[in-house]
């Protein structure tokens, strides 16, 4: 991770459409910028600014939705600037109650058909690709795109591969996809421009449960390789056979 460049990055406040503001802590993914985004979003929510409707962190930014007639962009930007000066957000601690979760994953085969293509884009053999992806301990950097769906990183540099030019029509729930040194683990069946390299049995979103979202920002995850036979045993387990331990 390129921590040096991110430390010299000044947070930037920009409009997002008419009724949104984006506060960015970097123009590339880095751990300090990601920490800053998670902590600053929580702080904006706590501030309870009149006219702010919702805020949410993305990878290195915080999106704030507001009523542009009632509040006004300039007044909101001034409030956010004051909040930015409260502390060194890049040095903010990770969220509390983090966990390390090992998720059984089938790499390749006909249920994750783009492993070979992704390995080639990364300049690796299929065996090397599986070794790198299954040994990586990645962190949930943000939840987004779909309900409870994590962006995880960072993967080794070889995995700085682009998205596809055309969308894959649909990957299933539990699909592990890769691009730009990140994994996304799909919580719903969805079209995607990322390459489908692994498949899990994990249900990330449980709308009728008291705890509808399985993963939280800051959690660490390893996608451990198993055979299709082993994975089929976890088919009825919403955790997909995942082993969970607290990070202290």
């Amino acid at each position: 991770m390129n921590d040096l460049t991110s430390r010299s990055f000044e947070p930037v406040i920009r409009p997002a459409g008419l009724d949104g503001v984006l506060v960015s802590f970097g123009d590339a993914l880095s751990e300090p910028a990601n920490r800053a985004a998670l902590a600053f979003s929580a702080s904006v929510a706590r501030a309870g600014i009149d006219g702010v409707e919702e805020c949410a962190p993305s990878l290195v930014s915080v999106f704030v939705q507001f009523d542009p007639v009632h509040l006004g962009y300039d007044r909101l930007a001034a409030r956010l600037t004051a909040l930015l000066q409260d502390r060194d957000w890049y040095a903010a601690p990770m969220p509390e109650g983090r966990r390390f979760i090992r998720v059984p994953t089938v790499y390749g085969t006909d249920i994750a058909p783009q492993l070979g293509e992704a390995a080639e884009a990364a300049g690796l053999s299929v065996e090397q690709a599986i070794a790198q992806l299954s040994e990586a301990r990645v962190r949930v950097q943000t939840i987004g795109f779909a309900p409870g769906q994590p962006y995880l990183g960072l993967l080794p540099e070889a995995w700085d591969i682009p998205r596809q030019t055309a969308l894959t029509k649909s990957v299933p729930e539990g699909a592990l996809v890769v691009a730009i040194r990140q994994f996304v683990l799909f919580s719903v069946s969805s079209p995607t421009g990322w390459r489908h390299v692994g498949q899990t049995a994990l249900k990330l979103f449980r709308p009728d449960s008291d705890t509808p979202f399985f993963l939280r920002p800051g959690d660490e995850v390893q996608f451990v390789q198993v055979s299709p036979d082993v994975m089929s045993r976890h088919a009825d387990d919403p955790d997909g056979g995942a082993v969970i331990e607290a990070i202290r």
Binding site: D27, F63, A146, Y151, T165, G193
Partner: peptide, 28 residues
Amino acid sequence: LSESILPGDIQVTGDGTPYLLLGESQTT
């Protein structure tokens, strides 16, 4: 980098096709 989406955003996919994103779109 993947970034927040809001309703009304016009996203251009890799082949140059624009999509107008609505209220039920993905969040990022």
